[in-house]
Design a protein around this nucleic acid. Structure first.
Lengths: 224, 224, 224, 224
DNA sequence: CATGAATGAGCATTCATTCAT
DNA sequence: TATGAATGAATGCTCATTCAT
C-alpha cells in the first residue's frame, strides 16, 4: 500500500480560501453521513461543497486527507465537550460522582453528532485518519489512570495503567454497540447506570458488593 | 448506494461446483489477508482461484457476496469452536469456571485465524457483511443470558437480558481493541484475567470483593 | 520520471482480440499522424479505434506502449523494405552501386509512410519507444560497416566502425531534413546524387576526385 | 490541435517588467533542464521564478511561448557565439582552416549549455518552437554558401546553394546524434576530425584524396 | 500591474459486470 | 457450464487559464 498523505497541502491564508476549506470539510462530513465512506469521492465532495475539484486538491491531497480533517474536527469537539464537563464538575467529589461524570461526558460527546460518530468509528478503515481518535482514547485512558491513582487508597486494582485500558476499551465498545443496537438503553439512562456498575465493580468490588445488595446499580436487593 | 445482493445466486449442487465455490471463497480469504479489502476485486479473486470471472459470477453476484461468504465461513468456524469448548467443559462448574471457559473460547476463536479475523473486523464493517458477526454475538448474548439464569440464586443482577448485552458488548470491544492495540496483553494471559475480573465483579461483586482482597484477578492483596 | 512500461500486458490469443489489438495500433498511428504525439491520449485512441478504454488497457499499459507498438510496426516494415531491396540487388556490384542501393533503400523506407515517419522521428520523445528505431539505425551501421570491410582494399578509412556511425548519422539527418524542408530535392533525385557524393567522397576521396572532375556527382567539370 | 500563440503578449517596457520576464525565462530554462518538457507547467515555472501565475500570463500566453522564449534565447546565444568566432578568425585562410573554424563554432555553441541544448533538441521538436532553430541553421547555410562562393576557384561543386544545404543538414544530424549517443566522440575530438573530412571530401575531393593518403582525417596511410 | 484562489475540461486508469463463443 | 474478451461508468488527479481582489 502506497504511503498516503493526510496532511493539508497548504494553509489557507486568505479569507476566501478559509471559507472554501470549511465548505469542503463540512461537505465531507455530510457525504460521509449520507453515503458512507466507500461512496465518498473527491469529485462528489467537491460537488457537494459547491466547489471545483481543483480547489479541493489545492488543499487536500486526496480522500484520506478529507476524512482526516473531519476526524480531527470531530475529535476536537469531543475533546472540548469532555474538558468542558470536567471543568464544571465539583472539585471534591466521590469516586462514584467522578466516574458518573466521565461516563456522561463520553456519552454526551458521542451524542452530539451521533451519525457522524458512527460512520467514523464503523466505516473509516484503520488508516492514519484514525490516529486522531486513538489519541483521544489515549487521553481518556490517562484521565482514568489519574483518577485511579488519585483514589489509590480506596481502589482495589494493582496496575492502574492496564486497568485504565480495560475500562476505556470496554466502555467504548459498550457505548458504540449500544448506540447502534440499543438506543433505548441510552435514552432511558439504564446504560449509564450499568456502565457505572461495571466500572465500579471492577475497580472497587467491595463497594459495589454492598451497594448492589441494597438494590443500587441494577443489583438484586438482598432478601434480608 | 444501490441495493446490493449478498446472497449466492444459486446453490452449487454438483461436486465440481462445490469445489469451484470453495476455491473462490478460499481465494477471497487469501486476497483479503494479503492485500486488504480495498484491493480485493472480482477479477483478482477469480485469477487467484484459478477460475474465470464468468464462473465466479455464476455463484456470487459481486464483491460483497464474496466477503460475506468468507465472513460466514469464519463466523461458522468461530461458532463451532466455541460450541465445541462448551460441550467439553465439565457439566457442574462454578460460575468462575464457566466464565473462564467462555472467555477462553472467545479468545481462541479469534486466535484461530488472527490475520483474517483482523481484516474482517478492521476493514469490513463498512459493508453489511458484518451482520453475520453480530448474529454470532447475539448467540453469545443468549448463551450468557442462559448462564446467568441458571445461576440466578448466586447472581447479583436483576435483568439478565440487559446484563448479557452489557457483558458481551464490553468484552467484544475489549477483545477487539486489545487485538489491535495490545496484543501483548492477549499473549500474556493478562487480558483473560482482567476480563474475568470485569465480568465476575459485574455479576457477583461480593464474590470478587473477597477474592480481590486475596490478590486474585489483579486485585490488591489486603494489608492484613 | 517514473519507470514506464512499454510492454504489452498480455498476448492476445483469440482471434477477436487479435483484431482489437490491430485496430488499436492502427488507430494510434492515425491519431499520431493527424493530431501529433502530445494530443494523443488513451481515451482518444480508444474512441478512434472504436474500442472501449478498458479493452485498450487490457493490452497496453499506457500511452507509451501504444506508441512503442506503432514504432515497432513501422521499424519492422522499414527493415523488411530494406532487406528486400538488398536481397534483390545484383550479387557482384561496385561500391558505388551498393551505396546507391542502400541510399535508395533508406529513402524508399521513409517514403512508404512519410507522415508517420516524420511524426515518429520529430515528435516522439526520447523514451523507450525510440529504442526500436535506434536498433534499426544500429542495423544500418552494421550493414555499412560490413560493406566498408568487404571493400577494405579500396576503402580509404581506418576505423570502419566510426566511419559507419558518421555515415549513417549524416545521411539520417540529411534525409530527415530534406523530407521536411526540401521535398523537391528528394523528388528530383538530386538528393540521392548528393548523398552518394558525400558518402563516396568520405570513403574513397580519390575515386570521387577523378569522377568529380568529369562532372559526375554534381562535380564541376574540369576546364581541360 | 488548436492554434497556439507563441508570441509574447506585450513587450515589457519598464525595467521591473524586464526583470520579471527574465526571471520567467530563466526559470523556464531551469525547469526544462531539471524536469524536462513534459513536467513543465505554467504554475511550476511561476513558482520557480518567484512570480505569480497571473504575472506570467501577462507576458506569455502559455507554455509554448515560454519554451519558445528559451529557444530564442538559446539560439541567439549560439548565433552570437558563432559570429564571434568567425570575426576573430584570420581573414585570409585556407578552406580547411575556415571549415575547421566553423565546425568548432558549431560544436562550441552546443557545448555552452549542453543540457539545455539536449532538452531543446530532444524534447521540443514536438512543438513549433523548433522553427527558431531552423532559422539558425538557415543562417548557417547562407554562411556556408558564402564561403563556398568565395572559394569558388578551388571548390569542386557546382550548385553552392544545394551544397550548403547538404553540408549543414548532414553536420547538424551528425552533431545531434553524436551528442545523444556518442559523447565520447565529441570529447575526444574525433568527431571534429571526421566532420572535417566529410565536409572537405565533399567539397574538394582531390584535396582530401591526397591528404588522406598521408593519413590525415582518419585516412589510411598509403603503403608506398 | 501583481496576486493567487478558483475553475473545469480532460487525462490515465480501474473494475464490476455482461455475453458471445 | 466455463471462458475471457469487451464494456464503460466512475475515480483520482493535473494544469492551463481566468479574474476578483
Amino acid at each position: 500500500m502506497a504511503r498516503i498523505r493526510t496532511v493539508p497541502r497548504k494553509a489557507p491564508t486568505q479569507q476566501r480560501s478559509r471559507a472554501t476549506v470549511d465548505a469542503i470539510v463540512d461537505a465531507t462530513a455530510r457525504v460521509l453521513v449520507r453515503d458512507g465512506y466507500d461512496a465518498l469521492s473527491t469529485n462528489r465532495v467537491a460537488r457537494e461543497a459547491g466547489v471545483s475539484v481543483g480547489s479541493l486538491y489545492q488543499y487536500f491531497p486526496g480522500k484520506e486527507a478529507l476524512v482526516a480533517a473531519v476526524m480531527e474536527m470531530h475529535a476536537s469537539r469531543m475533546q472540548e465537550s469532555i474538558a468542558e464537563r470536567m471543568r464544571n464538575s465539583a472539585p471534591a467529589a466521590t469516586p462514584e460522582e467522578v466516574a458518573t461524570e466521565m461516563i456522561r461526558a463520553m456519552l454526551a460527546a458521542q451524542a452530539a453528532e451521533p451519525r457522524l460518530h458512527r460512520v467514523l468509528v464503523e466505516q473509516v478503515p484503520r488508516i492514519g485518519a484514525l490516529r486522531r481518535l486513538h489519541e483521544l482514547f489515549g487521553n481518556y485512558e490517562r484521565l482514568v489512570e489519574a483518577w485511579l491513582e488519585s483514589n489509590s487508597e480506596r481502589i482495589e486494582v494493582q496496575d492502574a495503567r492496564m486497568a485504565s485500558f480495560v475500562l476505556v476499551a470496554a466502555v467504548e465498545g459498550l457505548v458504540n454497540r449500544a448506540a447502534l443496537d440499543r438506543p433505548d438503553l441510552v435514552a432511558s439512562g439504564k446504560l449509564e447506570e450499568q456502565i457505572l456498575r461495571l466500572i465500579l465493580a471492577y475497580v472497587v468490588p467491595s463497594y459495589v458488593a454492598s451497594a448492589s445488595a441494597e438494590g443500587r446499580y441494577g443489583g438484586r436487593p438482598s432478601k434480608a
